[in-house]
Amino acid sequence: MANDKSSMQLISRGILSENPIFKLALSMCPAVGISTTVMNGFMLGVAVLFVQVFSSITISLFKNLIHPRIRIPTYTLTIATWVTVIDLVLAAYMPEAYAKMGIFVKLIVAFAIITMRLEMFACKESVKDSFWDGLGMGLGFMVGMMAIGFVRELLGSGAILGYDVLGFKPLLFFILPSAGFFVVGLMMAFFNWIEIYYKRSRGLK
């Protein structure tokens, strides 16, 4: 990782070129599981953003004190701590949203994306850069979740953010479990297609 990244670059990298869902293909369980509405995607996105940013900062702050041998356990402990915090906070202040996300908030602890960012970025870079990187990754995750949620909510229940926009429910299929796979698969392919098209038009390949 280069040191001279600006904050904007770090954020845009998380959202676009290294989007955790569509590009890195990490932490896809919730992307398929609970992305039935935009709101669900947003809420889980917020939770992940919180955990990612705080874990990145924590690890970056203490990076010199972490013994290399116990690197992974320390990461896990840090993540678990912040997940517990956001879990308790959500359960207390947003019980309805929390009930919808079910077990997935607790499962943030097992998201590969967070551990990966800690290992690859936060344990080497400064606090400030780690913050921006965490923010970028978290936002990327949130945007991805919301995009999937948008498609599924619109097609599945004819609504966006709970507001009925179509007036009818086009295809119930899209809010069913299995549709998550199709929507994510098709969206990934769509982004790949854009990339291929872009490269071709630039004469790169």
Partner: peptide
């Protein structure tokens, strides 16, 4: 199809 190679097609099959 090239844009489906790799993960996207795995997702479709899993679906």
């Amino acid at each position: 199809p090239p844009s489906f190679k790799g993960l996207p097609i795995s997702f479709i099959v899993a679906g």
